[in-house]
């Protein structure tokens, strides 16, 4: 990872967001919900990101909201990853109808549009909190990774070393835990990062349409108020720009980490070597001149 600048940048940026999630509420200069007399002020030295129609400090709202965003992302990511490993690896390792059934189950969850599903479930719940939102997102978004893991397991279980372990009489559990899972680490990690990104965007989208933790703040709630109070027609750009940029930066950080993992898994994707056209290999007899165009 160290000689991969993309992944390193992503990890550092991610670290900053996690740090804000932990200390944000203590650092915030104002209580995000407290009203003041500075109504709809543009950014100034007192209010770095300006204020809302009620005089609330937007910088504090974004800072305090980081915790909820990171929390939902992490919890949903863990839930979905555990489920996808259970379903995906089992479906890949078991042959016959059990494997087929699990595979069909993940395909069903994959084609059902996730966002409308999450919306109908969360709006029917007796109470919505960060935890329930995270659980609903986690329970509905494991299918993609399960599919990837199943394909990977299918190709691993026929490898010689797995056959050898089976011939040695190792138990199925031992084969899955110690022979197959370690070789899936990169895939699982990349799936986790991808799910966190999906969960973060889903949570913010939910909050934007009005389903969020009662009384809590996240970047989506900030945008919800900006939209419902006509921030756009009043020219209050500072109301929605910071939250949106925060989402895009967090998303970019997560994507960069994932690129790092992808390039680690698939060395062909590394951009460093600028070979184009023909790539020479030892033992490949007809030597061609490199394309000159």
């Amino acid at each position: 990872m160290r000689n991969n600048p993309k992944a390193l940048t992503g990890l550092v940026a991610l670290g900053v967001f996690v740090l804000f999630a932990v200390v944000g509420p203590w650092l915030a200069p104002f209580d995000p919900s407290t009203r003041s007399n500075d109504l709809l002020q543009p950014p100034s030295s007192a209010h770095w990101f300006g204020t809302t129609h009620l005089g609330q400090d937007i910088f504090s709202q974004v800072l305090v909201g980081t915790r909820s965003v990171i929390f939902v992302g992490a919890v949903a990511g863990v839930v979905a990853t555990v489920l996808s490993v259970l379903v995906g690896v089992t479906a890949g390792y078991l042959s016959g109808s059990a494997g087929e059934g699990l595979s069909a189950l993940s395909n069903v969850f994959l084609v059902i549009p996730a966002l409308p599903l999450i919306v109908i479930i969360t709006s029917s719940l007796p109470e919505t909190s960060n935890l329930t939102i995270a659980l609903v997102i986690g329970l509905t978004s494991w299918a993609w990774n399960a599919r990837v893991l199943r394909a990977q397991t299918l190709s691993l279980r026929r490898r010689d070393y797995v056959e050898a372990a089976r011939a040695n009489g190792e138990s199925t559990w031992r084969i899955i835990l110690f022979e197959i899972l370690p070789n899936l680490t990169a895939v699982i990690a990349s799936g986790f990062v991808g799910t966190v990104l999906f969960a973060v965007i889903s949570e913010i989208t939910l909050a934007f349409i009005g389903v969020s933790d009662a009384g809590g703040w996240n970047w989506g709630t900030v945008l919800y108020w900006a939209q419902s109070q006509q921030a756009l027609t009043q020219g209050a750009w500072w109301w929605f720009v910071p939250a949106g940029l925060a989402i895009a930066l967090l998303g970019t950080a997560l994507s960069l980490v994932n690129f790092g993992i992808d390039e680690y898994v698939n060395p062909r994707l590394r951009t460093r070597s600028s070979t184009r056209g023909v790539r020479m290999r030892v033992g490949f007899t007809p030597v061609l001149a490199k394309e000159t165009s």
Binding site: L197, I201, I204, T205, F208, L223, A226, Q227, L232, G235, W237, F240, V241, A243, G244, I247, A248, L250, G251, T252, L254, S255, L256, F259, T271, S273, S274, T275, R276
Partner: peptide, 30 residues
């Protein structure tokens, strides 16, 4: 065209694809 100027498009597209659709709409309206 890997390894040429075209590679510089990748960071831009990564950033753009991380932005939620609706926020881009807000910016466009503004």
């Amino acid at each position: 065209r890997r390894g040429t100027w075209a590679d510089s498009l990748i960071p831009v597209t990564t950033f753009v694809s991380s932005i939620p659709y609706f926020w881009l709409g807000l910016v466009a309206i503004a």
